[in-house]
Amino acid sequence: MGTMEQLTLQLRETAREILESKKAAAVIGWEMGTFWYSTAPAILTRPEETERLVWNEYCLNNLAKYLLDFQNTDEKVAIFARGCDYRGINRLIQDKQIDRDKVLIIGLSCPGMKDDKKARELGQNADIPLAKKCEECTYPDALAYDLWVGEPKEAAKPAKAEAKVFPEVESLEQMTADDKYENFAANYEKCLRCYACRNVCPACSCRECIFGNSSKEWSAKANNLSENMFFALTRALHVAGRCIQCGECERICPVNIPIMLLNKKIIQDIDHLFGPYDAGLDPEDKMPLGSFEFTDPEEFM
């Protein structure tokens, strides 16, 4: 823990310097939450507030989405970014939600965060496992940054991605059609349609969401399986090719729906059909569903 505490001090120092020198109007980081196993995103605007910043094993929130709060201002914003935050920031830049010039990225190397739900169950002295999304993480460090906090690291350009295969997706694919449907229905029977997954998602940045307005008649207010499925499938296809695999949707879900099962299926298919692609690594990349090749497969015709 020693190093993370030291890093917390460095984080605060960096944030204070940025705010004092007015390099940015705000700094986005994490502060302590209500419990020892919780943190909350913090948006700081005054140098003296930077004492609130923390960097510990429960900094689970992806901060990128909070950049949208500054979408309509001219001010520059500083943001702490690990691999997942970095990919989220790129997501927003690529989707033209925010200018790269308006963001000051402070890179961090992430050791992997711990599962806060397990922590609540097991108590402070137990050995808490890594959060699921961190276990599966492939890019723990920010790949490009303006400032760096912690041990200096060489900005390692990722090797060309390989076509991903997810065992949980593959095992689902083996089932019969009716079993698949039953399984899918059982997951989404629970959905409350609280839209927390949408709100936390860096790829969900439409100004007007079809699920935000029932007068458009796309989705009814009624909470039933069919509507829940409509929401799940529509959202999965809306973020297809743009999902950065941060796993925030699944982490935030109050009824523990394995939302990433849908996203992973799409990611896996994109990799195998159109070539390996990791979203959010480079804002200049062509997006799989925003581009095409003349040689694309035509297996369904």
């Binding site: 997706v169 694919e173 449907y181 296809l237 297809a240 849908l262 694309d296």
Partner: peptide, 26 residues
């Protein structure tokens, strides 16, 4: 060309959640 990519993915997704693939064709 965009349709082709989109429905290639969508068809696989529908099959994945248990729809018979014949029900969505292009």
């Amino acid at each position: 060309y965009f349709t082709r990519r989109r429905f290639l993915l969508m068809r696989r997704l529908m099959e994945y959640i248990g729809m018979e693939p014949e029900r969505l064709q292009a």
